[in-house]
Design a protein around this nucleic acid. Structure first.
Length: 436
RNA sequence: GGAGGAUUCGCCUAGUGGCCUAUGGCGCUCGCUUGGAAAGCGAGUUGGGGGCAACCCCUCGCGGGUUCAAAUCCCGCAUCCUCCGCCA
C-alpha cells in the first residue's frame, strides 16, 4: 500500500512511477476523486456523531430526574429523544455511504504498485542493467569434455530422481536422494551459518498461512494464480518464507532501537507456476516445490537502501563461497514486483544451457508491505511504518543445479567447493554403481 | 471432535448500560535530588483518522446487532487456557 500523503501531496511522482512500470497513471486521479468523496462523508459523519453524543449525555440526567418524580422534564426529554432518534437514523445511513466511499478509495489504492527507485533502469523485462560479472565460466572444451546437464549428473550421482517425483506428485516434482538430499541439508546449514554470522536470527516458519498473511505481503494480487490454496481450511501454502517472515511482526509496534531486525527463514516454497507452461520443463530449474533460505529485514526507512545493498553483498558472498560464476542484474522498472522499488538478481552460469539463470533475488519494499501488515516502529513521538527487505540466500534446487553443473568433472563426479566441505563431510560426489 | 473459562494501554489489573473523557500497579521516558547511582518526589507514557485552526471522530481480541447511549447486553468469528476424546 502506498502512503496516502504521497498521493495527495505529490501526485506527479506517483504518475511518473506508474508510467515507468507501464502501469495505469489514470489511477491517481481516480483515487483523488474517491478520496475526497470519502473525506467529506467522514467529516459529515463525525460532526453528527459529536452532536449525538452530546444529546445522549443530556438524556441520562433527565431520565434520572424523571424517575425521581420530576415530571416537569418530561416534555424536554421527549423532544431530546426524538431528535436523538433522528440523528441515529441519519448516522446509520451516513455510515453506510462513508464505508462504501472508503472501500471504493481503498480498492483503487490497492492497485498502485510501489514508487520505483529513481536509480532503477527504466524499461521492461529485457532492459535490466548488468552491474557486474563475478567469476568466469569454465572452458569445458579446453578441459576436453562436454558438460553434462544436472539431470544426467543427478542420475549418475543418485542425487535427483525426477521420474519418481512425477510418478508420485506429477510434473515439476522430484526426489532428492542420497548425496542430493545431503547436499541440500549441507547448503541449508552453510547458509544459516553465514546468515547468523551477519546478524540474522535463524527461523523455521510455518509454510501454511492464513489469508491475511498472504494478502498482507501482496501475494493475493496479480500473483494469486501462482499460490496454492487449501479451501477446506482456508490456508495458503507459501511460495517463499518471505510471507511468514513479513507477517511475523504483523500488527506490532516495534521498538525503534531494535532495528534492523534480521531474520533468515528456512521453509519449503510452493508455486503453481500457472503462467509458465512449457518453460523449463526438464530438470529441477522450475518446480512446484523447493526449499529455500530467505533473508528478511525490518529496518528504519532511512536505512533501507543501505540495507538493500548489504543484502546484495550477502548474496554475492554466499555465491562466491560456492565458487559459482555469476552476474548481478539491476532489474528494470517494468519487471519489478508490485511491492519492490528496486530489485537485484544474481544469475549463476548454467553450463548445459550456456546461459546465466536466476539463483537469488533481493528486493527493497520500503514501507509498502508494512502498511498492509501494520508493522510500525516506535520513535520519539508516534509510530512510523518500517521498511521491509527480502532476499534469497539459498534456493535449494537452483543452487544444486548450479553446483553440480559447474563443478562437474569428466567422469561425472562433482568437486565440492571448499566452504561447503565441512558442512557436507565430503570433498567429491562420486557416481553410484547402481541407481536405487 | 466435545465441554467449560478467558481476551482491557509494553506487562499485570479495576471495571455488569449514561459519573468510562477507562482504574491502579510494574516497566519505560523526562525532571528534581546526588560526586555518581539506588531510593524518594514530580510529570509523562495505546494507537489511528479528519480539519488552516479551535477542535472533532474512532480504538477495551475481530465483525455484526440491540439502544437516544455499549468495555458492559445479544449473535457470529479468531486466539489462548483447562478437562475429555483421538493422535504423534
Amino acid at each position: 500500500m502506498l502512503d496516502p500523503k504521497l498521493l495527495r501531496e505529490t501526485p506527479e511522482l506517483v504518475k511518473a512511477s506508474q508510467r515507468a512500470r507501464g502501469a495505469d497513471e489514470g489511477l491517481v486521479d481516480a483515487w483523488h476523486a474517491a478520496d475526497s468523496n470519502w473525506r467529506s462523508l467522514n467529516t459529515k459523519y463525525d460532526l453528527i456523531r459529536a452532536e449525538q453524543k452530546n444529546l445522549s449525555k443530556a438524556i441520562g440526567p433527565l431520565q434520572g430526574k424523571l424517575k425521581g418524580g420530576d415530571s416537569a422534564v418530561q416534555d424536554e426529554l421527549a423532544q431530546l429523544m426524538q431528535k436523538a432518534t433522528a440523528l441515529a437514523d441519519e448516522l446509520t445511513q451516513l455510515a453506510v455511504d462513508r464505508d462504501a466511499a472508503e472501500a471504493a478509495a481503498n480498492k483503487i489504492m490497492g492497485g498502485f504498485a510501489n514508487i520505483v527507485d529513481a536509480d532503477a533502469p527504466v524499461g521492461g523485462e529485457d532492459d535490466f542493467k548488468i552491474i557486474e560479472t563475478i567469476g568466469t565460466p569454465r572452458d569445458f572444451k579446453a578441459a576436453g569434455f562436454e558438460p553434462k546437464d544436472h539431470i544426467e549428473l543427478g542420475e549418475l550421482l543418485g542425487a535427483i530422481d525426477i521420474e519418481r517425483g512425477a510418478k508420485v506428485s506429477g510434473s515439476r516434482f522430484y526426489y532428492l536422494t542420497g548425496v542430493g538430499a545431503l547436499l541440500e541439508l549441507a547448503l541449508v546449514r552453510m547458509a544459516m551459518d553465514f546468515a547468523t554470522k551477519w546478524g540474522f536470527t535463524a527461523v523455521i516458519p510455518p509454510a501454511l498461512v492464513r489469508p491475511q498473511a498472504m494478502e498482507g505481503t501482496g501475494f493475493l494480487g496479480q500473483a494469486a494464480v501462482d499460490v496454492y490454496h487449501l479451501p477446506a481450511d482456508d490456508l495458503y501454502l507459501v511460495g517463499t518464507s518471505e510471507v511468514p517472515l513479513a507477517a511475523f511482526h504483523m500488527d506490532e509496534i516495534l521498538d525503534g532501537r531494535d532495528l534492523p531486525l534480521r531474520y533468515a527463514g528456512f521453509s519449503p516454497c510452493f508455486r503453481r507456476e500457472a503462467g509458465s507452461h512449457g518453460k523449463d520443463t526438464k530438470g529441477i530449474i522450475r518446480v512446484h516445490w523447493f526449499d529455500k533460505v530467505e533473508l528478511f529485514a525490518f529496518c528504519d526507512p532511512k536505512d533501507a537502501a543501505a540495507e538493500h545493498a548489504k543484502f546484495l553483498e550477502f548474496e554475492k558472498e554466499f555465491l562466491t563461497a560456492l565458487e559459482l560464476p555469476f552476474r548481478v542484474l539491476d532489474i528494470a522498472t517494468g519487471d519489478l514486483g508490485m511491492s519492490a522499488i528496486r530489485k537485484f538478481d544474481c544469475e549463476a552460469w548454467i553450463p548445459s544451457q550456456s546461459a546465466y539463470r536466476e539463483v537469488t533475488s533481493t528486493s527493497n519494499c520500503t514501507t509498502f508491505q508494512s502498511r498492509r501488515l501494520r508493522i510500525r516502529s516506535k520513535v520519539s513521538e508516534g509510530a512510523e511504518y518500517v521498511s521491509t527487505l527480502n532476499g534469497t540466500l539459498m534456493a535449494s534446487t537452483r543452487t544444486i543445479v548450479a553446483l553440480l553443473e559447474n563443478h562437474q568433472q569428466a567422469d561425472g563426479s562433482v568437486k565440492v567447493p571448499k566452504a561447503l566441505i565441512p558442512h557436507l563431510g565430503m570433498e567429491v560426489l562420486t557416481p553410484v554403481a547402481k541407481r536405487i
